[in-house]
Simulated scan of single mutants.
Amino acid sequence: MSAQNSDSSSGGAPPGTVNLATLSLPQLRALQTRLTSELEHLTTSHSKLRAAQAKFRDCVRSINDGVTGSEAKGTAGCDEILVPLTSSLYVKGRLTNREKVLVDVGTGYYVEKTPEKAISFYDEKVKGLDANLVELEKIVQGKNSQLRVVEEVLRQKMLAGEGAEAGASA
């Protein structure tokens, strides 16, 4: 009887939605697996966006500390810096021009900018990633709630199935 009620109430449901009560246990398990996989992918993407945001913030910090910061201190010996060759290998370097920096704009392209414009460029990247992260967090929350609903319906169907099996064997 409740299946009829839910079928009639789903008449106003948006197109593309599925009444979970009408799905079989294997279909519910497949849906649960798909939602879990999507959630893992979205969570990984979220972590990668956070890491990219941290790198852009590090670029701003490097410009402030390594280029404009030591100039503001007025110390003549601060022209030496460490230049990263890999993530764990650095060589000593010397700044020859504090008026321009090379900015990695993606896919191996570098653009010469003033330190102020480079900071502005990276700040815009951080803001853009903030907006993307907010949207992604909303999607993750939605997928999480969908997964909880599917797991609850699956649990109820399994309990109902156990009760029916117990009644049939008695």
Rank of each mutant, 00 (worst) to 15 (best):
L136Q: 06
D79A: 08
L159W: 05
A51D: 13
N97G: 06
A13P: 00
V150R: 01
N97E: 08
L133F: 01
V153G: 04
G142I: 06
L147T: 02
S47N: 13
A166W: 08
V60E: 02
V126H: 01
R61M: 07
E165H: 09
L129E: 05
Y90T: 12
N19M: 08
A72R: 13
D104W: 11
S10N: 09
E116I: 00
C59D: 07
A21K: 03
G74R: 05
D58K: 14
L129P: 02
N19P: 03
E151L: 05
G16S: 09
G66V: 04
I139W: 05
T96W: 07
D123L: 02
G106T: 12
S87L: 05
G12P: 03
S2N: 13
D130P: 09
R61E: 11
Y122T: 04
A54I: 08
G93L: 06
L133N: 00
V91M: 11
D7G: 07
G128T: 11
L25C: 04
G77H: 10
M1N: 09
P84H: 06
Q156E: 14
L39D: 00
K48Y: 05
G142L: 09
S87G: 12
V134F: 06
I139N: 05
A13W: 03
N19G: 07
T17M: 07
K143Y: 12
D65V: 09
S87R: 07
K113W: 05
L42Y: 03
A54E: 14
A168L: 13
T33S: 12
L133T: 04
A3L: 14
N144F: 07
E135W: 02
D104T: 10
K55E: 13
K127H: 11
T44A: 14
D104Q: 09
P84V: 07
Q146K: 10
E116D: 15
D65N: 15
K100H: 10
F121P: 04
N132L: 11
R155K: 14
S62C: 06
Y122K: 01
T33G: 07
Y122Q: 03
N144W: 04
G128M: 10
V83R: 01
T43M: 07
E137F: 04
V140Q: 04
Q4V: 11
N97L: 06
L129I: 15
E112V: 06
V83H: 02
A168V: 08
A3K: 10
N97R: 10
K55I: 09
P14S: 13
P14F: 10
N64D: 14
D7P: 01
V153W: 03
V153P: 03
E151Q: 15
G77I: 03
I81Y: 00
